[in-house]
């Protein structure tokens, strides 16, 4: 299975390990991610659209036009990129004014778009196109000692008319993946609450409070790690965890893994290849359990 891969900016910088682990896990599953040549930033939800709305459409549309040349679905790892590209795609198909503006913008640089690209998140691709049965067949190291809280955040399953692959309020498909890998799912209240997203830059105290609630909820429910499907959610829960602990005088110490890193561990891929040394909250506390299972 081959897909046009739109990594997004974070996967080429602060979340390189997300891309590395995704490619490693996909290789095991015979999923070929071919990067969209010369892709640009999607516009990042409101970051550009709040400043110059039409520019946001043009930025996302250029990526769709480049992906369309590859004649396959475009797949992303980031919930924000997923939302932004899917929203532009929907506007192109349903809003004549937006379509005209996009077409004009693309034509100015010799590009065109017909609306034939389907925008998808890698999690949905792996669950729908590959399927849990094939994933289960590739598990070499069942993660029996992992109690995993699946964190969806806002945009992976909402709004429903853009995503439509899991319940928007009570999603469960990432939990099904967790159980397929031999781990235990952790039920907790905050799986679809907001992590604070880019408020980490513009209003950090709000972001810290929002992420704190998620972390404490997951930990109190018995999780020994959290998995995410978005580099920004992972960043806020992982890289800012120390700031949360400091601000609220807490000790949390909860490793935050990209879901592809968890898959890679279950597939028996080396922790370094999955970039686990780049996670800020050390996952070393749970990794010996993987080594023990491997040794048996």
């Amino acid at each position: 299975m081959k897909y046009a891969f739109y990594p997004g900016c974070a996967v080429h910088s602060s979340s390189k390990e997300y891309g590395d682990s995704a490619k490693a896990a996909c290789k095991v599953l015979d999923v070929d991610l071919v990067e969209v040549p010369d892709w640009n930033c999607c516009g990042a939800i409101d970051a550009v659209s709040s400043y110059k709305p039409q520019y946001s459409l043009a930025l996302a549309a250029r990526n769709l036009a480049l992906a369309e040349k590859m004649q396959t679905d475009v797949v992303t790892l980031c919930s924000a990129c997923y939302f932004t590209l899917a929203r532009t795609n929907k506007l192109f198909k349903e809003n004549a004014e937006a379509k005209a503006k996009i077409t004009e913008a693309l034509a100015s640089v010799g590009l065109s778009y017909s609306g034939n690209v389907k925008v998808r998140h890698l999690l949905e691709v792996l669950l729908s196109d590959v399927g849990l049965e094939k994933i289960k067949a590739k598990v070499k190291v069942p993660l029996n000692s992992f109690n995993v809280a699946s964190y969806y955040g806002c945009l992976l399953v909402r709004p429903l008319d853009l995503t439509n692959f899991d319940d928007p309020e009570h999603p469960t498909r990432m939990d099904e993946l967790v159980e397929t890998l031999g781990a235990s799912k952790v039920e907790y209240y905050s799986k679809t609450r907001c992590c604070g997203a880019s408020l980490g830059v513009t209003d950090e105290k709000v972001m810290l409070e929002l992420s704190k609630r998620i972390l404490l909820d997951a930990k109190n429910a018995g999780a020994n790690c959290v998995i995410t499907a978005c580099p920004l959610c992972q960043f806020n829960l992982d890289a800012k965890q120390k700031d949360i602990e400091s601000k609220f005088a807490l000790k949390i110490g909860l490793p935050i893994l990209h879901f592809t890193q968890l898959m890679g561990l279950a597939f028996g891929i080396d922790a370094k290849e999955l970039g686990l040394n780049r996670n800020v909250v050390s996952p070393n506390r749970i990794l010996p359990q993987v080594a023990e299972i491997r040794a048996k």
Partner: peptide
């Protein structure tokens, strides 16, 4: 160039 030519891109 594409962004410059995009209509409606006025500063808010």
């Amino acid at each position: 160039n594409m962004l410059q030519k995009t209509e409606g891109g006025k500063e808010q």
